[in-house]
């Protein structure tokens, strides 16, 4: 049985009622792992509270921060500051320079683009090539697809069709997330897979984008954040007395 993940829930962290509703609905819809966007200055105590809420609903919580840097230098500063604090880092690319920097930086997990402006979606061949070398993934939020109407939705579908085709060509992983701000914008994984067929994403590929791909990102990052991690492929297996003298 597949384990589904939704890496992008955006509840208000201060509103615990809304948070509880969204987490329990995610559990009801069949998700076993959710990523909640948190403010960068969140305390460890608050994160523990959120983990308890998710644990009660039988869900694994992934901490996530969305960086909306204006310049590449600001992005680098923020990555240096937040990489070890959050399990997933997404960069909302609002300019081409930031998009390029984010795509080539191995500390960035998810590249996301503004849904309402097709001119500011910078996921082209060059971006995909950089992203494929740096292991970052293209994130597709489904909430705008539900909330936009008529011409805006047509434009968004057209952009997504182009971007998903480019990502597939360059082997860039695609992650489908809800991007939901309330319970009414949350849907089940099979519904998202059906909606993804609107931009020519095969159902099997879409289901992978809702399960294996996000789970692999989280697994990789948790391994990196573990105290036993030294470098990719190298980790501490034993310490102190268990370690034989050489």
């Amino acid at each position: 049985m597949r384990r589904f993940a939704d890496l992008h829930l955006q509840p208000s962290v201060k509103d615990s009622d809304q948070l509880n509703h969204m987490v329990s609905r995610a559990s009801e819809l069949g998700y076993r792992l959710v990523g909640i966007t948190l403010p960068p200055n969140i305390t460890q105590e608050k994160i523990r509270q959120l983990q308890d809420i998710c644990k009660d609903a039988g869900i694994d919580l992934v901490t996530r921060v969305d960086l909306t840097s204006k310049t590449p230098n600001q992005l680098l500063r923020e990555l240096r500051h937040f990489r070890r604090k959050f399990e997933t880092i997404s960069v909302v690319c609002t300019s081409k320079a930031v998009a390029r920097q984010a795509a080539k930086d191995r500390r960035v997990d998810l590249l996301s683009f503004p849904a309402t402006s097709s001119r500011r979606r910078f996921f082209d061949y060059a971006e995909a090539e950089l992203a494929s070398n740096a292991l970052s993934s293209l994130e597709v939020d489904m909430a705008p697809l539900l909330s936009l109407k008529s011409f805006s939705r047509i434009q968004l579908l057209s952009s997504l069709r182009k971007e998903v085709a480019i990502a597939k060509k360059f082997g860039v992983p695609v992650v489908i997330s809800s991007g939901a701000t309330n319970v009414y914008l949350m849907r089940g994984p099979y519904e998202y897979a059906a909606l993804a067929s609107l931009f020519d994403m095969a159902v099997s590929f879409a289901l992978r984008a809702l399960s294996e791909t996000p789970l692999n990102i989280v697994k990789r990052n948790r391994e990196k954040l573990s105290p036993n991690f030294i470098a990719p492929g190298i980790r501490i297996v034993r310490r102190k007395r268990n370690c034989p003298d050489t």
């Binding site: 819809l29 697809l145 539900l146 909330s147 309330n182 319970v183 009414y184 914008l185 949350m186 849907r187 089940g188 099979y190 519904e191 998202y192 059906a194 909606l195 067929s197 609107l198």
Partner: peptide, 18 residues
């Protein structure tokens, strides 16, 4: 499935159909 998932409001009130 896609059509049902795309419904976000009925009579001006927010809804979700699962």
């Amino acid at each position: 499935r896609a059509s049902i998932a795309s419904i976000t409001e009925i009579n001006g009130k927010p809804v979700a159909i699962d």
